[in-house]
């Protein structure tokens, strides 16, 4: 049984529509604190849409409408009084393609704390170093913090984006296929990093690479045409899934 204390995000009967099209159907799921949760499923199954619901990224899409409840630490992030900026600070996001800002490495990481009003140089220094260390990038860039972030390799850029997300001290990190644009070595580094991150953060990751989900996640949700078909421990999903559809998808019999 899952203890309530362990649940950081609780999703109940979540439906999402893009105009008339329903993209998510009655999603129920509890996300556990300081665990890695992977979302898998064929293209268009709604896994990225679900991920984007978690920090209200779908708000920016015209015609998107949400029903149901999405409780983060006991508070509904879709309640009228919810503070979207606060939600996005506490729930950070990493995208498929690394998207560093065209500024120095240091500026990239200090950007978030700065727009949150932190201008104390010493404090920013320590945030930048701590974030880069936690993103496993410090050793590679500590001697060139003032150089442009655009000069970093793809894998380094992605870790920089992770450092940038960590700088505002989030509780949850959402990752949307964070390694799909990276080579195998850079991918391995990000994967090890995810395993380190879960000591402090809750990570939710969308991935097309099932072996990646099996390697780094504690729990896995399999989605298909907007529904959560099966959600459980990663071991269970990949060794002995209970739903025929999950079985057929992960063994490559369709999709």
């Amino acid at each position: 049984m899952i203890d309530d204390e362990e649940i950081i995000i609780s999703i109940r009967d979540l439906n999402l529509f893009y105009d008339e099209n329903q993209a998510l159907q009655g999603i129920d799921m509890d996300i556990l604190r300081k665990r890695v949760t992977a979302l898998i499923g064929p293209s268009g199954c709604g896994k990225s849409t679900l991920l984007r619901c978690l920090n209200r990224m779908n708000d920016t899409i015209d015609g998107a409408r949400i029903e149901g409840h999405l409780m983060f630490e006991g508070e509904d992030i879709y309640a009228p009084q919810a503070d979207v900026l606060n939600v996005r600070t506490r729930i950070g996001m990493i995208f498929q393609k690394p998207n560093p800002f065209p500024m120095s490495i240091w500026e990239n990481v200090a950007y978030g704390p700065r727009i949150h009003g932190n201008n104390d140089r010493d404090e920013l220094e320590s945030i930048v170093e701590r974030s880069l260390r936690r993103a496993a990038l410090w050793d590679e860039v500590s001697d060139r913090l003032q150089e442009s972030a655009m000069g970093l390799s793809g894998g380094q850029q992605q870790r920089l984006c992770i450092a940038r997300a960590l700088a505002v001290d989030p509780e949850v990190i959402l990752m949307d296929e964070p390694t799909s644009a990276l080579d195998p070595i850079a991918t391995q580094r990000i994967e090890s990093l995810v395993l380190e991150l879960k000591e402090r953060y809750t990570v939710i990751i969308v991935t097309h690479n099932m072996q990646q989900a099996a390697r780094i996640s504690d729990r896995t949700g399999f989605m298909y045409v907007g529904e959560m078909i099966e959600y459980g421990s990663t071991k269970q999903i990949f060794e002995n899934p209970q739903m025929e559809l999950t079985e057929r998808y992960i063994t490559g019999r369709f999709g």
């Binding site: 990949f238 999950t246 079985e247 063994t251």
Partner: peptide, 10 residues
């Protein structure tokens, strides 16, 4: 080659 899962792995 295939890193099988579920019933194939078993």
């Amino acid at each position: 080659l295939y890193q099988p899962v579920a019933r194939d792995l078993r």
